[in-house]
Simulated scan of single mutants.
Amino acid sequence: MEIYCDNAATTAIDPEVIQAILPYLTSNYGNPSSGHWAGRKVKEAIAAARQTVANLIGASAEEIFFMSGATEANNLALTGAIKANDISHVITSKIEHKAVLQRLALHEKAGDIEISYVKLDDFGNVDLRHLENLLDANPQTLISLMHGNNEIGNITDITAIGELAKRYNAVFHTDTTQTMGKITYNVGESNIDFLVGSAHKFHGPKGVGFLYINKRNKIRPIIVGGGQEKGQRGGTENVAGIVGLAKALEVAYKSRAVVQNHVSVLKRYFISNLDDLTIGGITFNGESRSATKGLGNIVSVAFPCLSSGSLVKQLDILGIAVSGGSACSNLADGGSHVISTIYRNPDKEIVRFSFSKFNTLEEIDYIIKSIIRIYQSDRLIEATQELEQTAL
């Protein structure tokens, strides 16, 4: 039996999205920069996709730019915002995605900016009072804080952050990779300057994402040559990917309430079953246990270490795909920077389970039974080892 519970990493493409993409992999293969009928046909498809995304998030079409994914979009937004606004100070957190942290670190190393890291509480939540203090003390600031954390599921109050950004004349960038398609947006009524989304996180294709740039901002491109995306990103457009992104977001918005209810039921059922286990020592990371402060599809769990190896690998052997945040005694050596920031217990293994509309309660039952089986086997191994040592 194969069960996929790593949907925070990537999701299966929705069947409706596949159908929308197929014509652009077969008959509609023109280059959108070409002036003939074949080019015009796909150029119109890109324009329609741009309008769809804009309508869904409350933007205008000229504020939507298609990218290769969230990593490129984050890099362009951060570098562009710093250069265009003469930013000398950036506020972020130590649990942002590395696409953000590493780009900012490069600017700091080059002497472009100074970085301040906003305080986080024990659950990884942003300290809004500290954020305001940092803004008050530092003019010409860029704020870069993600909406939903990809490892622990925390939801950040970007509305409150946007209001602070407006009050202190700061530029606000947010990575919504984990929340896009799960939470509705109206950027036209927000104080967000830059917003990032990635199709493969909401049942669209890989290799395509988008960047919203509020029209009050003007930034220079990183990739030049060709003038595509209104000069903001050179290179022939990924037409099938762009069409798929728009369709995936449309499907996600249309079914959002039903899907969110479904994954929330799965999450509650999973947590309830974990609570009933007699393994002992199971805890939850960040706000992933919460129904209101954490994303409905992510549960980050700290398990007692196995003597027989990694729980993630044992689950993989049984056909269950999940993500490992940090292995036992490995928080400082190649482990998750998110987990090591908020959680310091080397006697636990961190496992992230992330669900989608395609998961079922029957799969949750199989996962729970598999965890029980793994720990029972591990205890038997430990007992055998103890007997052998006693005999010696």
Rank of each mutant, 00 (worst) to 15 (best):
D275Y: 02
V259E: 01
A257K: 11
S272V: 11
D276P: 10
G244V: 14
K247W: 09
V265K: 07
F270M: 02
R256E: 00
K254T: 05
D275N: 13
L274F: 02
N261Y: 15
V265L: 12
N273S: 06
I271W: 08
K247Y: 12
S264A: 11
V251Y: 05
S255Q: 13
Q260R: 13
L277G: 06
L245C: 10
R268F: 09
K267C: 04
D275G: 13
R268G: 01
V251T: 06
Y269E: 10
S255A: 09
A246T: 10
F270V: 01
L277H: 01
A248C: 12
L245M: 13
K247E: 13
N273P: 04
E250Q: 09
H262A: 02
Q260T: 02
R268Q: 12
K267W: 02
N273L: 08
H262M: 02
Q260S: 03
I271H: 01
Y269S: 07
L266T: 06
I271T: 06
Q260N: 13
Q260V: 00
G244D: 12
H262C: 02
L266C: 04
Q260Y: 05
L245G: 15
S272W: 13
L274T: 04
K254Y: 07
K254L: 04
E250R: 04
L277R: 02
N273E: 08
F270H: 01
I271E: 09
K267D: 04
L249D: 01
Q260K: 12
A257N: 15
F270N: 01
F270Y: 04
S272P: 00
N261D: 15
E250D: 14
V259D: 00
K267T: 07
K254R: 03
Q260C: 02
A246R: 08
L266I: 08
V265D: 15
L274I: 14
R256Y: 06
V263C: 11
A252K: 03
F270A: 01
Y269K: 08
V243H: 09
V259Y: 05
V258R: 13
E250F: 08
N273K: 09
S255D: 05
L277T: 03
V251G: 01
V243I: 11
S264E: 15
K267A: 05
A248E: 14
D275A: 12
Y253C: 00
S255N: 11
L245N: 10
I271Q: 06
L274H: 00
A252G: 09
V259R: 05
D275K: 05
E250W: 03
V251M: 08
L245F: 14
L274D: 02
N261H: 15
S272C: 07
N273T: 08
N273Q: 13
R256G: 01
A246W: 07
L274W: 00
V265G: 09
